[in-house]
């Protein structure tokens, strides 16, 4: 499935829903959405990954970029990631720096 990244701006929150396969060829599109999100100066970045079927290290590098671009104080939530996406995040220790949620918990996520 082709990669898609859609940005939605909620009060204080930037929510990006990514789907399909995230490899080095499409990572720049994800990075652009992050840049657009950062311009809105949100207090929280939420990445909804339920329909993300694949993520390589190119996706991990965009997560590092997001943290650097947004600032260390802005929490990044990773929501609904499938096991094959969670594994590289854990293997590289990225789960220490983002909040991993199994499903979209609106009360927790949107209460900023």
């Amino acid at each position: 499935m082709a990669f898609q990244a859609n940005l939605e701006l909620l009060p204080n929150i930037a929510k990006i829903t990514i789907s399909g396969e995230l490899d080095a060829s499409v990572a720049p599109a994800f990075r652009e959405r992050i840049e657009e999100a950062a311009e809105a100066s949100p207090k929280r970045l939420v990445l909804v990954m339920n329909d993300l079927e694949y993520m390589s290290s190119a996706g991990l590098r965009v997560l590092v970029f997001a943290k650097q671009k947004m600032g260390a104080g802005i929490d990044i939530y990773v929501v609904g990631a499938q096991p094959q996406v969670v594994e590289p995040i854990r293997q590289t220790g990225f789960h220490h720096s983002v909040v991993m949620l199994d499903s979209y918990d609106a009360e927790r996520i949107e209460n900023v």
């Binding site: 390589s56 590289t92 220790g93 220490h96 720096s97």
Partner: peptide
Amino acid sequence: PDNFDDPLEEREIGGLGIYLAIN
């Protein structure tokens, strides 16, 4: 990479792909 416990904003981004491939 061996800085797996460092905060994300301080992480080196080189070598992640090769690390995942070999491991």
